[in-house]
Measured scan of single mutants.
Amino acid sequence: MKVIFLQDVKGKGKKGEIKNVPDGYARNFLFKKGLAVEATPANLKELE
């Protein structure tokens, strides 16, 4: 799953980066803790 990092995550990505991460990791950790959002067209547009 492609995500946009909202904060630096040690060993995974830095704020503003767009990266592919495993689905479970994204849903169960990154999204729940507010560290990233899914890289949807709407979210990508907001990032610009």
Score class of each variant (00 low, 15 high):
36 A>N: 01
9 V>T: 03
24 G>H: 14
40 T>Y: 07
36 A>Q: 00
6 L>T: 09
10 K>M: 13
41 P>N: 10
22 P>E: 11
24 G>V: 12
13 G>Y: 13
19 K>W: 08
13 G>P: 00
6 L>K: 06
45 K>R: 14
47 L>M: 12
9 V>K: 02
13 G>K: 01
34 G>R: 10
31 F>K: 03
2 K>W: 15
3 V>F: 00
33 K>W: 15
30 L>R: 00
31 F>D: 02
3 V>H: 00
39 A>H: 06
15 K>L: 06
11 G>H: 08
9 V>M: 04
41 P>S: 12
1 M>W: 05
21 V>K: 00
7 Q>F: 14
6 L>N: 02
2 K>V: 14
15 K>S: 06
2 K>A: 12
29 F>Q: 06
9 V>L: 06
48 E>A: 14
10 K>N: 10
1 M>Y: 06
43 N>D: 06
48 E>H: 14
2 K>P: 08
29 F>I: 11
17 E>A: 06
37 V>S: 04
11 G>A: 03
2 K>Q: 14
47 L>E: 07
27 R>I: 13
6 L>D: 00
3 V>R: 00
29 F>V: 13
22 P>G: 08
1 M>V: 15
28 N>E: 13
29 F>M: 06
1 M>P: 04
46 E>N: 11
8 D>K: 04
3 V>D: 01
13 G>V: 06
11 G>R: 05
21 V>A: 03
33 K>Q: 14
3 V>Q: 00
10 K>V: 12
1 M>D: 02
10 K>E: 14
13 G>H: 11
23 D>H: 13
15 K>N: 03
5 F>V: 00
7 Q>V: 15
22 P>T: 10
44 L>M: 11
25 Y>E: 08
17 E>H: 05
44 L>I: 14
23 D>S: 15
43 N>M: 11
42 A>M: 07
39 A>E: 02
6 L>F: 03
17 E>Q: 12
45 K>G: 09
12 K>S: 14
4 I>F: 08
38 E>G: 04
11 G>L: 05
48 E>Y: 13
16 G>N: 08
43 N>F: 10
20 N>W: 15
5 F>P: 00
15 K>W: 04
25 Y>D: 05
5 F>L: 06
9 V>E: 01
15 K>Y: 05
10 K>R: 13
32 K>E: 09
5 F>H: 00
45 K>Q: 11
14 K>H: 10
34 G>S: 08
17 E>T: 06
10 K>G: 09
32 K>H: 09
27 R>A: 07
48 E>D: 12
13 G>T: 02
18 I>S: 03
29 F>N: 06
32 K>F: 07
25 Y>F: 12
8 D>L: 05
48 E>S: 13
12 K>A: 15
14 K>V: 11
33 K>A: 12
46 E>I: 10
41 P>Q: 12
27 R>T: 10
7 Q>K: 15
27 R>F: 11
7 Q>P: 00
33 K>L: 15
41 P>A: 14
35 L>S: 02
8 D>P: 05
26 A>R: 02
16 G>V: 00
8 D>V: 04
22 P>I: 06
26 A>E: 08
47 L>P: 05
19 K>H: 10
21 V>N: 00
34 G>N: 09
1 M>G: 03
41 P>L: 13
22 P>H: 10
16 G>P: 00
18 I>D: 00
14 K>T: 09
39 A>N: 03
40 T>D: 06
32 K>L: 13
1 M>N: 03
7 Q>L: 10
31 F>A: 02
48 E>K: 06
18 I>A: 04
19 K>N: 04
24 G>I: 12
37 V>N: 03
14 K>E: 07
19 K>I: 11
10 K>Q: 12
34 G>E: 06
43 N>R: 07
46 E>W: 15
20 N>P: 07
21 V>M: 12
8 D>R: 04
28 N>Q: 10
11 G>Q: 04
24 G>A: 13
36 A>G: 05
42 A>T: 12
30 L>F: 02
13 G>M: 02
15 K>G: 04
45 K>Y: 11
18 I>M: 04
45 K>N: 11
42 A>R: 09
35 L>R: 02
20 N>V: 15
20 N>I: 15
2 K>S: 13
30 L>K: 00
46 E>D: 14
30 L>E: 01
48 E>M: 14
38 E>N: 05
2 K>T: 14
47 L>I: 13
1 M>T: 14
36 A>T: 00
12 K>D: 06
6 L>H: 02
20 N>K: 10
33 K>S: 10
25 Y>R: 05
35 L>K: 03
21 V>L: 07
18 I>V: 13
36 A>Y: 01
17 E>V: 04
23 D>R: 13
29 F>E: 09
5 F>T: 01
12 K>Q: 15
24 G>L: 13
28 N>G: 11
42 A>W: 07
36 A>L: 02
19 K>V: 11
24 G>S: 14
4 I>V: 07
7 Q>G: 06
25 Y>N: 05
48 E>L: 15
47 L>V: 10
14 K>Y: 12
21 V>P: 00
41 P>M: 12
45 K>T: 09
17 E>F: 03
12 K>G: 14
45 K>I: 11
44 L>P: 04
10 K>H: 11
44 L>S: 05
22 P>F: 08
30 L>A: 01
4 I>G: 01
1 M>E: 03
45 K>A: 15
35 L>V: 05
23 D>I: 15
19 K>Y: 06
18 I>P: 01
19 K>G: 07
12 K>R: 15
16 G>T: 02
44 L>Y: 06
24 G>R: 14
8 D>E: 08
2 K>F: 15
6 L>Q: 04
6 L>I: 10
31 F>E: 02
13 G>Q: 02
35 L>G: 01
37 V>T: 07
13 G>W: 13
16 G>H: 09
1 M>F: 08
43 N>H: 10
27 R>G: 03
17 E>Y: 03
18 I>E: 03
23 D>L: 15
42 A>D: 14
32 K>G: 06
29 F>Y: 14
48 E>V: 13
8 D>N: 10
35 L>I: 06
22 P>N: 11
5 F>W: 03
40 T>P: 05
27 R>H: 11
1 M>L: 14
5 F>N: 01
26 A>N: 03
4 I>T: 02
29 F>R: 04
32 K>Y: 08
30 L>I: 01
32 K>N: 06
21 V>S: 02
3 V>L: 02
43 N>S: 09
16 G>I: 00
33 K>N: 15
36 A>E: 00
3 V>W: 01
43 N>E: 07
39 A>P: 03
15 K>E: 05
